[in-house]
Simulated assay, not measured.
Amino acid sequence: MSDMFLDGAELQRLTARRFKSKQIEWLRKEGIPFRVSATGHPVVTRGAIEGKKEEPAQPQRWTPRVVGAH
């Protein structure tokens, strides 16, 4: 199974950029969704470039229990 995120070499190959600031600039220009890590590096999921739609996490909906109902 492959990793969920692109590694540094894959990101460099995708963007053809070596520096994180230039990679971020390229990703924004191309409209590829990414996040920035605590170290300032772009983080791209494989799904973002493979064309798979990422499902947002659905918060669990709280359902009240009715007193006395079984």
Rank of each mutant, 00 (worst) to 15 (best):
M1K: 04
S2Q: 15
P64A: 12
W62L: 06
G68V: 09
G51I: 11
H70C: 14
G8E: 15
L14I: 04
Q12F: 01
A16Y: 12
L11A: 01
R65W: 14
R28D: 03
S37L: 11
I24A: 04
A69I: 09
D7N: 09
K22E: 08
F34K: 04
G47K: 00
T39A: 15
P64T: 09
V67A: 14
S2I: 13
A9H: 07
D3N: 07
L11M: 06
E50H: 13
F34W: 02
T63A: 15
G31Q: 04
K53D: 10
P64D: 14
R17P: 01
F19Q: 10
R18K: 05
W62V: 12
L6S: 03
R46K: 14
H41I: 09
V36T: 06
Q12A: 05
E25A: 03
H41L: 13
E25W: 00
R35N: 14
S2G: 09
E54S: 08
A48K: 10
R65I: 15
K53T: 08
R17Q: 09
V66I: 12
K52M: 14
E30T: 10
H70E: 14
G8P: 08
Q58E: 13
I49M: 14
A9D: 10
G40P: 06
R18D: 04
R28I: 06
S21Y: 07
Q23G: 00
G40Y: 05
A9R: 08
K29D: 11
V67L: 12
R17T: 00
A38C: 08
E54K: 05
F34H: 05
W26Q: 02
T15C: 07
M4L: 09
A57Q: 14
E50N: 12
P64C: 09
R13H: 09
K53C: 09
K22N: 06
R18E: 06
A9W: 06
H70K: 15
A9F: 06
A69G: 06
F34L: 02
A48G: 12
L14D: 01
I24Q: 00
E55Q: 13
G51H: 04
K22S: 02
P42S: 04
Q58R: 15
A16R: 11
D7E: 08
Q23T: 01
R17K: 08
F5E: 03
L14G: 04
P56K: 13
W62S: 10
L11G: 02
G40E: 09
V67S: 14
G68D: 10
G8L: 13
E25T: 05
Q12K: 10
L14C: 07
V43Y: 11
P42K: 02
I32W: 02
L14V: 01
A38T: 11
W62A: 12
S21D: 11
K20P: 04
L27W: 01
G8I: 07
A57S: 13
Q60T: 13
P33A: 08
A38P: 07
Q60K: 15
G40W: 01
F19D: 05
P56M: 14
R65E: 11
K52W: 15
S2V: 11
E25N: 00
Q23H: 00
